[in-house]
Each structure stands twice: as C-alpha cells, then as structure tokens.
C-alpha cells in the first residue's frame, strides 16, 4: 500500500496548505502596506525583499498560496461535482440522450479550458468567485467524459446488470456499485485537475483576468514582476517556484493514488 509518490505529494501539498493557513492568521506585513522601499533585496526587514510598489514579497507569496488553493479547491469541488453528475446522468441515460451528451462533451473538450474561463470572466469581471466558477465550469467536461466511460463500464458488468434487473433502485446502484468502482480513477483525475486549475488561474491572472488585489495571486505577481526582472529576479523566481511545487504536489498525489489503487501501474504516470 505504500507509495513514495503519494507521500511526497502529500508533503508538498501539505506545505502549501500550511502556508495558506498561516497567512489567514498572520503575515509579516499588511498586504496593502507599501511602506518598504521599492524593489529592496532580501534583508532583516523584508526577508524576501519588496516588490516595485514597496510591498513585502513574503506577505504576497503567503496570500498567493491562499488564493491559489482556494481557487483550485473551489474549482475542483464545482467541476468535480458537476462532472460526476453529468457522467452519472450520461451513463444511466437512454441511448440517444447518452449519444447527445457524448457529442456535447467532445465539443466542450475541444474548447480550451482557459478560453472558456476567459469568456466567463470577461462577462463577470475578475474576482475570486468568478475565477472559481469559470475554471470549475471549464473543468466539468474534462471530469465528465472519463466518468461517463467508467460508469458505463461498471453498469455493463454482469453482477450490476443482475442487481438492476432484480430491482435495486438507481441510487442504490450508484452507492453500492458505481461509486466504489470509479472512485480511484475519479480521485486521480481530480488531483490532476487541482494542478491544472492552479495553472489555469495563474494564466488568467498573468493575462490580467484574475482577481484584483488584495486577493492577488502568484500569476498576478509574475505579471507585475516581468518588467523589473533584471533588478529583482527573485520576484519572478519565487512565485513561479511555489506554483510549480504546488502543481507537482498535486500530480504526485494523483500518481500515488493510482499506484495504490493499481500496483500494475507503478512507475507509470
């Protein structure tokens, strides 16, 4: 049952979660505090230096962790719930309805996540909630498509068919057969989607479509730091690194869950 990937992934994810939790209680400075000198290098006052408006970099990084995680988790919760529901519905639906949903899912998948998110945000203005909605909605199809296939595979099993014909209600089938069989694949997918959601949010913020300060995310910090990269390279490196660690953490958790669920896949991604 042991999986090194799972342990490593949990450590990385746990680290970022810890930072985010701490930031809710304490940050070295107030996020709006511009009292520091501009673009100061790391020192005793500002451990990681300041940005070009004189704000403390460490403070911003900590808040960025909170933003990234809340958007990521919120989007996964929304997209996962909707996607699972859609997958179940299509799996149980009559033939023609299932076909229609299959086509719809194909179309939605062909439609890049980020563009869909941009559409929602363009209409609603950047905010935490619209970022969650946008990314979560865009994720729905990506969750629903494999879920539909897995639901159908479970329903095609002889013992499930037997249970259905013997009159077990569909909620009973879902709880008794479908969910227990599809949860590993679903969990793997959702962990991967957490990483994707965080990356998508960073992309949106980098393009200026993310939530505005004080909920500024790492993507937003990178956007701001781009012009001053030669003077303050740390402002570009630090948020990017944290982002990468968080996403690697999510991907490793996905790998770990897959390994634990299916030892044959060990060593594959």
């Amino acid at each position: 049952m042991r999986s090194r990937a799972l342990v490593a992934g949990c450590v990385l994810l746990g680290g970022v979660v810890a930072i985010a939790l701490v930031s809710a209680l304490w940050t070295p400075y107030d996020p709006g505090d511009t009292s520091g000198g501009r673009l100061e290098p790391p020192g005793p006052e500002h451990w990681l230096g300041t940005d070009r408006l004189g704000r403390d970099l460490l403070t911003q990084l900590m808040i960025g962790a909170r933003v990234a995680l809340s958007i990521g988790a919120g989007a996964v919760a929304l997209g996962g719930a909707l996607g699972l529901l859609a997958g179940l519905a299509a799996g149980f639906a009559v033939r023609w309805l299932d076909d229609v949903m299959a086509v719809a899912l194909d179309v939605l998948i062909a439609f890049p996540t980020l563009l869909l998110a941009m559409l929602v945000i363009a209409a609603r203005r950047g905010s935490l909630l619209s970022a969650v909605t946008a990314i979560g909605l865009a994720m729905t199809a990506v969750v629903a498509r494999p879920a539909r296939q897995q639901v159908k595979r479970v329903l095609a099993q002889d013992y499930v068919t037997a249970a259905r014909t013997s009159g077990t209600s569909w909620p009973g089938i879902v709880a008794g057969h479908v969910l227990p069989n599809i949860w590993p694949a679903l969990a793997v997918n959702l962990a991967l989607q957490l990483g994707r959601a965080v990356l998508a949010e960073a992309g949106l913020s980098y393009l200026g479509l993310g939530p505005p300060p004080p909920n500024a995310s790492w993507g937003h910090m990178l956007r701001e730091a781009q012009t001053t990269v030669l003077v303050a390279p740390g402002d570009v490196v630090a948020p990017g690194l944290l982002l990468v660690l968080l996403v690697i953490g999510a991907n490793l958790v996905a790998d770990g869950v897959r390994e634990v669920a299916d030892p044959l896949l060990r060593g594959r991604w």
Binding site: G203, G219, V229, G240, L243, V244, I248
Partner: peptide, 18 residues
C-alpha cells in the same frame, strides 16, 4: 518531464527571455 507538466508556460517564457 514531470517538472515540465507542472510549470506554467508563461513562466518558462519569462525565464527564457530573462
């Protein structure tokens, strides 16, 4: 390549430009 899956494309761009 695991690392490549986790980096935001614009960040790679920024680093390469720098």
């Amino acid at each position: 390549s695991q690392l490549g899956l986790a980096v935001p494309v614009f960040w790679v761009g920024m680093l390469l430009v720098t």
